[in-house]
Protein backbone atom coordinates (compact mmCIF):
# COMPACT_ATOMS: atom_id res chain seq x y z
CA UNK A 1 0.00 0.00 0.00
CA UNK A 2 2.74 2.40 0.87
CA UNK A 3 4.69 3.17 -2.28
CA UNK A 4 8.41 2.86 -1.63
CA UNK A 5 10.85 4.66 -3.95
CA UNK A 6 13.26 1.86 -4.75
CA UNK A 7 16.21 3.47 -6.49
CA UNK A 8 16.66 0.37 -8.63
CA UNK A 9 13.08 -0.54 -9.49
CA UNK A 10 11.07 2.67 -9.21
CA UNK A 11 8.02 3.15 -6.96
CA UNK A 12 6.85 -0.27 -5.73
CA UNK A 13 4.18 -1.47 -3.31
CA UNK A 14 5.50 -2.01 0.22
CA UNK A 15 4.28 -5.62 0.23
CA UNK A 16 7.29 -6.48 -1.97
CA UNK A 17 9.65 -5.42 0.79
CA UNK A 18 10.74 -6.49 4.23
CA UNK A 19 10.78 -3.66 6.74
CA UNK A 20 14.14 -3.47 8.50
CA UNK A 21 13.49 -0.15 10.20
CA UNK A 22 15.69 2.56 11.58
CA UNK A 23 19.28 1.37 11.71
CA UNK A 24 21.48 3.48 13.97
CA UNK A 25 25.25 3.30 13.49
CA UNK A 26 26.80 0.17 14.96
CA UNK A 27 28.80 0.98 18.09
CA UNK A 28 32.42 -0.11 18.39
CA UNK A 29 32.17 -3.58 19.91
CA UNK A 30 35.42 -3.16 21.82
CA UNK A 31 34.45 -0.03 23.74
CA UNK A 32 30.67 -0.26 23.97
CA UNK A 33 28.97 -0.73 27.34
CA UNK A 34 26.12 -3.23 27.75
CA UNK A 35 23.61 -0.39 28.08
CA UNK A 36 24.80 1.25 24.87
CA UNK A 37 24.83 -2.02 22.98
CA UNK A 38 21.31 -2.92 24.05
CA UNK A 39 20.12 0.55 23.17
CA UNK A 40 21.55 -0.08 19.71
CA UNK A 41 19.72 -3.42 19.55
CA UNK A 42 16.35 -2.48 20.95
CA UNK A 43 15.74 1.25 21.39
CA UNK A 44 14.58 3.51 18.58
CA UNK A 45 13.61 7.20 18.67
CA UNK A 46 10.20 6.46 17.05
CA UNK A 47 9.75 10.13 16.25
CA UNK A 48 6.85 11.79 14.52
CA UNK A 49 7.88 13.19 11.18
CA UNK A 50 10.41 12.17 8.57
CA UNK A 51 12.55 9.20 9.57
CA UNK A 52 15.25 7.42 7.62
CA UNK A 53 14.72 3.70 7.54
CA UNK A 54 15.92 0.62 5.71
CA UNK A 55 13.73 -1.69 3.66
CA UNK A 56 14.78 -4.89 1.87
CA UNK A 57 13.33 -5.40 -1.62
CA UNK A 58 12.78 -9.10 -1.08
CA UNK A 59 10.50 -9.58 -4.11
CA UNK A 60 12.38 -7.29 -6.40
CA UNK A 61 15.99 -6.30 -6.80
CA UNK A 62 16.97 -7.78 -3.39
CA UNK A 63 18.81 -4.66 -2.37
CA UNK A 64 18.68 -3.08 1.05
CA UNK A 65 17.50 0.46 0.39
CA UNK A 66 17.21 3.52 2.55
CA UNK A 67 14.10 5.63 2.26
CA UNK A 68 12.64 8.44 4.25
CA UNK A 69 9.10 8.02 5.53
CA UNK A 70 6.85 10.45 7.32
CA UNK A 71 5.50 8.47 10.27
CA UNK A 72 2.29 10.55 10.38
CA UNK A 73 1.17 10.36 6.75
CA UNK A 74 3.26 7.43 5.42
CA UNK A 75 4.52 9.62 2.60
CA UNK A 76 7.84 8.34 1.36
CA UNK A 77 10.72 9.87 -0.51
CA UNK A 78 14.21 8.94 -1.54
CA UNK A 79 16.71 9.19 1.25
CA UNK A 80 19.09 12.10 1.29
CA UNK A 81 22.70 11.56 2.20
CA UNK A 82 22.60 13.89 5.15
CA UNK A 83 19.50 12.44 6.73
CA UNK A 84 15.90 13.53 6.92
CA UNK A 85 16.26 16.54 9.18
CA UNK A 86 18.86 18.21 7.00
CA UNK A 87 16.60 18.70 4.02
CA UNK A 88 15.66 22.28 3.23
CA UNK A 89 11.96 22.93 3.49
CA UNK A 90 11.25 19.54 5.04
CA UNK A 91 7.69 19.35 6.32
CA UNK A 92 6.82 19.29 9.98
Amino acid sequence: MILLPCPWCGPRDASEFGHVGETPPRPDPDTVTPAQWRAYLYLRPNSRGWVAETWYHRMGCRRFIKVERHTDTNETRQASQRGPAARAGAGA
Binding site: G18, V20, R63, F64
Partner: peptide
Protein backbone atom coordinates in the same frame (compact mmCIF):
# COMPACT_ATOMS: atom_id res chain seq x y z
CA UNK B 1 19.42 -12.12 3.68
CA UNK B 2 21.69 -11.91 6.74
CA UNK B 3 24.78 -12.10 4.55
CA UNK B 4 23.42 -9.58 2.09
CA UNK B 5 22.45 -7.19 4.89
CA UNK B 6 26.01 -7.16 6.25
CA UNK B 7 27.58 -6.87 2.82
CA UNK B 8 25.28 -4.15 1.55
CA UNK B 9 24.85 -2.01 4.65
CA UNK B 10 27.85 -2.57 6.93
Amino acid sequence: EWLENWLQTE
